[in-house]
Design a protein around this nucleic acid. Structure first.
Length: 735
RNA sequence: GCCACCGUAGCUCAGUGGUAGAGCACUCCCUUGGUAAGGGAGAGGUCACGGGUUCAAGUCCCGUUGGUGGCUCCA
């Protein structure tokens, strides 16, 4: 009976007898046979040597042609194989008693978790030896040989090797309850095996089974080690068995692999480049911001230079907002706890907020009553029966769980550092009556919010505990949603274009059709999602639909920007919210003279000033366009003889509003140029007797390694002024 | 939060139990110069903080604090 194999292009091939995937590849063409690494049978990744004995669809996973990028599947298989090679190399270099646990490919490479016996250690000093050994194994071009063992046979083999991690992996693969893994936090949290149980265990030898190095592994792998291309161990970290902190601590060794040495080198160069651009390093060097342990973790002190960058960005946005009919508001950093109970932020986000602030008198009274800490929290977090009735009535649902209600006499009030700006803005909206003629109401604020990030999550300016959102809330009628979402997106486009971030994409978070956790009616959701999709489409940039990624109160649009070295950053969002107006009982008077619910759009194109500035620092590597530069020009007198003229040049720059300084130090001109270049000053104006005589400046532009010649001072000031006013992304003033 | 590593001058870092160092930056002096570091001198430290071991601690041990990396993507 013939076997029919369907190829990705729809072609069908028939075979009279079972064939391997490699055979099929050979029948398609010798080139494909040669470049084949693995295959997908009915969508499942398998070895090339897999025997095909039934009808199926087959895709060959091939190495990239020279000059082409490898497919994700090809990289995945190659890196999985490289993980084996690295593990073998480590066992050779460090010792055979290093126990292997878990070694999957990742997005940028692979890792292998291993247990290192007492007294031994894997250190970065050994990387060179490990890399050399890996190169040897790859050079030897040994075949990856799969063999299978019946469950008992395989398990006893693993037990004999004394590797409990592999025994555990095997038991999971077989769908059995684990016998050796005892670290789980609780029995009920035990993960079920993700694949259906199988009755066989598979092993891969790098060479001949029983003779060469081997590992329990589900595969697939490339045909032989020589097909890996270039691989390298990159870093060390620690991890837990199954990511469970109560379980054994393992050493995680990271590595990466690419089809060619050139691609590996390019990747390593990019890592190098990323390190050089690190906003924490550049931020210190250029004195843009400071984090002080005495002030607190994750709290940014904006130093004068960084404050200029931030202030320029804020002015830029504020200018655009004015054009779009926004009005600016200011609100405090703190609000009553009840406010956030109404908005639902508390206790929903309780764990990521700073603890409530309870007044001293209340604390004293509770302490006097002998209140325990837990009891105090219960009273702070509880709500009154009246509150429950009002909220449940407004939302027409059991929004407030009965167990949250406590007797009024026990309620303890307090304040919360604000985790979001929307409740304050909702209250501003509610503070005056609104006619449909006034809608939409657009309230904007650079609002500072505070969130409790775990200490391990903090990172420079990009993950912080206090940050300022370029926030706004648009209170609009339902009909206005499409136009308002459009307006938000065009604002984002102006911002990205001005900053030269041309490469960005959009994710539209939609509701998961099968889930029922969302508020609002189906009709409203359909309209809002359609508006978001239409708006995303109109941007003319790539966008994806992300079902299940919507907020519970409405769909959202996220922006992902690619910086100059190709890294992606998730920045601002636009979110449509049906929920907030209900919870705060907001309304406007419609043409029918009756109250109607507004819809709220939350939007923050930068996300937060802290994070955005951090990203910008890395994007520009500290070399900001002139309009953002803390210092836009520096005057460099050739010698003290021209100090007076230099001061006149400086005065002219200051008079035109240019941020400039003069370097009257005792260095020679070479030294002054070097110093200014280190500080990434956009324009250097060298002035000597020749220039003074002609009322000119000799211009040197950042990034260009030569003197561009002299130009009249007045002309320079005029052109630089225009460049700054127009917020040009590139330095454009030349003689 | 948990684990590993780390914390020495403003910055980058050396210093394996015996008198705290270098380069850059800073101040002063010499040099008065034409496009990516001229020369010299000086100042600058409770070696993160607290405890311990030792005749002796930046160095070894314990604790605290802060930073960095990491905390599964079916073996």
């Amino acid at each position: 009976m013939p076997i029919q194999v369907t190829l990705p292009n729809g072609d069908k091939k028939s075979f009279d007898a079972p064939v391997t995937a490699a055979d099929v590849a050979r029948s398609i063409g010798p080139g494909l046979a040669k470049s084949a690494l693995a295959c997908k049978i009915d969508g499942e990744a398998r070895d090339l040597s897999t025997l095909i004995d039934r009808d199926c669809s087959l895709a060959i996973i091939a190495a990239p042609k020279p000059g082409q990028q490898a497919s994700p599947d090809a990289l995945y298989v190659m890196r999985h194989s490289a993980a084996h090679v690295m593990a073998e190399a480590i066992q050779d270099v460090v010792g055979k008693d290093v126990l292997l646990a878990y070694g999957p490919p990742t997005e940028t490479g692979f890792f292998y978790d291993m247990f290192v016996p007492e007294g031994k250690k894997i250190s970065s000093d050994q990387f060179e030896a490990i890399n050399a050994r890996m190169a040897e194994i790859i050079g030897a071009d040994r075949p990856f040989t799969r063999y299978e063992a019946a469950s008992e046979e395989g398990l006893s083999k693993l037990r004999a090797e004394g590797n409990k991690y592999k025994v555990d992996n095997a038991e999971r693969a077989l769908g059995r309850p684990p016998s050796v893994y005892t670290g789980a936090k609780s029995g009920s949290q035990q993960e079920a095996p993700r694949a259906g149980p199988s009755s066989l265990l598979s092993f891969y030898a790098t060479g001949a089974p029983g003779k060469d190095w081997e590992d329990l592994c589900r595969g697939p792998h490339v045909p032989s080690t020589g097909r890996i291309g270039a691989a390298r161990v990159t870093s060390l970290a620690s991890s837990y068995w199954h990511g469970d902190e109560n379980s054994d601590r393992l050493t995680r060794v990271y590595g990466t692999a690419f089809p060619t040495q050139a691609e590996l080198d390019a990747y390593l160069r990019q890592l190098e480049e990323s390190r050089a651009r690190d906003h924490r390093v550049i931020g210190r060097h250029l004195r843009l911001f400071h984090i002080d342990e005495e002030v607190g973790q994750g709290l940014i002190l904006w130093t004068p230079n960084g404050s200029i960058v931030r202030k320029e960005l804020q002015t830029f946005i504020a200018d655009e907002l004015r054009k779009q009919g926004y009005t600016e508001v200011f609100t405090p950093h703190i609000g009553r706890l009840e406010l956030y109970k109404t908005s639902g932020h508390f206790p929903y986000y309780k764990d990521s907020q700073f603890a409530p602030i309870v007044e001293r008198d209340d604390l004293a009274r509770l302490a006097g009553e002998g209140c325990s800490c837990a009891e105090m929290m219960r009273r702070v977090e509880g709500v009154s029966g009246h509150f429950r009735d009002v909220m449940n009535e407004r939302t027409r649902a059991q929004t407030i769980a009965p167990e949250r209600v406590i007797p009024d006499a026990q309620l303890v009030s307090g304040f919360l550092l604000k985790p979001m700006n929307c409740p304050h803005h909702a209250k501003i909206f509610a503070s005056a009556p609104h006619s449909y003629r006034d809608m939409p109401v657009r309230l904007a604020e650079f609002g500072t919010v505070y969130r409790w990030e775990q200490s391990g999550e903090l990172n420079g300016m990009t993950r912080v505990r206090g940050f300022t959102q370029d926030d706004a809330h648009l209170f609009c009628t339902e009909d206005q949603i499409p136009a308002e979402v459009q307006g938000c997106l065009s604002l984002v486009r102006v911002i990205f274009n001005t900053l030269g971030m041309k490469d960005y994409r959009v994710r539209v978070g939609m509701r998961d059709p099968s889930a029922d956790k969302y508020t609002g009616t189906k009709e409203n959701w359909d309209k809002a999602e359609a508006a978001c999709l239409a708006a995303a489409e109109s941007l003319g940039v790539p966008f994806t639909r992300e079902p299940g990624e919507a907020a519970f109160y409405g769909p959202k649009i996220d922006f992902v920007v690619k910086d100059v070295i190709g890294r992606e950053w998730q920045l601002g969002t636009v979110q449509v919210d049906y929920n907030m107006a209900i919870r705060f009982d907001l309304s406007y008077i419609g043409p029918d003279n009756r109250p109607h619910r507004p819809v709220v759009i939350h939007r923050a194109p930068f996300g937060s000033m802290e994070r955005f500035c951090g990203v910008l620092i890395e994007h520009f590597a500290g070399a900001f366009p002139a309009w953002l530069s803390p210092q836009q020009a520096r005057v460099l007198p050739i010698s003290e003889k021209t100090n007076d003229y230099a001061q006149r040049v400086l005065a002219a720059l200051h008079a035109a509003g240019v941020r400039a300084r003069v370097d009257t130090g005792s260095d020679r001109i070479q030294g002054k140029i070097k110093a200014a270049a280190d500080e990434k000053v956009p324009y250097l104006l060298v002035v000597g007797p020749r220039d003074a005589e002609q009322n000119a400046v000799s211009v040197r532009v950042r990034g260009q390694e030569k003197d561009l010649g002299a130009m009249p001072l007045g002309l320079f000031v005029e052109r630089l002024g225009a460049e700054i006013r127009e917020r040009r992304a590139h330095l454009s003033v030349t003689p």
